[in-house]
Amino acid sequence: MTNEQAATLRAQWIGQQLRAMREGARLTLKDVGDFINRNASTVSRMESGIIPPRVPEVLAYLDLCGVDDPRRRDDLKTMAQDAWQKGWWDGFSANVAGSLIDWIWLESRATEIRSFQASVIPGLLQTRAYAEALIRAWDDAATDEEVARYVEVRMQRQRRLEQPDPVRFSTVIDEGALRRVVGGPEVMRAQLAQLRTVASWSNVEVMILPASAGAHACPDGTFDVFRMRRPYAPTGCVSTAVGAVVVEGERADSLHQRYDRLRRAALRNGAVQRFLFDLEARLE
């Protein structure tokens, strides 16, 4: 269990906070270890995110470092609780959900997600058949059982859009992604119809970047930006062929700025509905 927790982004985040707090107080690893009844090696592993700290350990850190600001203490307590948070994803095996754990957790904590997609429809808006076709193309060695589990993870993620307090989801989809027929005409027709439906939801905004827009703000690929609940700052995830790169601070802000530029160049509202309906009608 500890090793699985060690890989999480949230464990690394709180570890960074603990280290900065200790160094700011000019304390050694041994100083902290003696105070919380841990050896220096264990304290180092907590600060590296290898061992997520428990709430009592975080509170002890705060006491030792002389941090008495109630807001700061509440923030770090929340981060410690999140480091051990369990969710629906725990029901899936590590090889199915493991690489997505950080992404899923960011979605669970976000109040708003902004997504630019250049080659596929966003995972949160995919139909089951479309998702299955993508996954089979992505991993042609996966068994039918593995594919079914991958698809189920994607379908579970979509519940975040329909919860009582749903996340706000805004996406700009490149026209090329919509013209790429995934899974055959029937699957693609159903996917386009699904997009038209969700585009009418109050918490979902679907936009299309037309080919006529020419060069645009993000020619290098796709990304998602998450506006997070306190105590977390905005976070971005840039998709690559070997996984997502997580960015924070100014780099996340730059993704928001790129998204704003893409949004200004995109079709919206009725123009999106007409575009999707026309594409759907042309499929044979």
Rank of each mutant, 00 (worst) to 15 (best):
T2N: 10
E4W: 07
A6R: 00
T8Q: 09
G15P: 08
Q17I: 09
Q17A: 12
R22Q: 01
G24H: 15
L29D: 01
K30S: 07
K30Q: 13
V32T: 10
V32G: 08
D34W: 09
I36V: 08
N37E: 15
N37W: 13
N37S: 13
R38H: 14
V43W: 07
S44D: 04
E47P: 08
S48C: 06
S48F: 06
G49Q: 02
I50W: 07
V55Y: 02
E57F: 11
K77N: 14
K86P: 00
F92T: 06
V96P: 02
G98M: 07
S99W: 15
L100T: 05
T111Q: 08
Q117G: 09
A129C: 12
L134E: 04
W138L: 12
A142L: 04
T143C: 09
E146L: 12
V151D: 08
V153T: 05
R159G: 15
R159I: 06
L161A: 01
P166Q: 07
S170I: 14
D174L: 06
D174I: 03
E175I: 01
L178W: 06
R179V: 03
V181W: 05
V182P: 04
G184I: 07
R189N: 10
Q194T: 15
T197Q: 15
T197M: 10
V204S: 01
H216V: 00
T222Y: 05
D224P: 13
R227N: 05
M228Y: 01
V238S: 02
T240Q: 10
A241L: 14
A241M: 15
V242A: 13
A244F: 04
A244S: 14
V245R: 09
E248M: 12
Q257W: 07
R258V: 00
D260V: 11
D260H: 06
R261F: 02
R263W: 05
R268Q: 13
N269T: 07
G270D: 14
A271V: 01
V272P: 03
Q273M: 11
R274I: 02
D278Y: 02
A281Q: 15
A281S: 14
A281Y: 13
R282V: 04
E284Q: 11
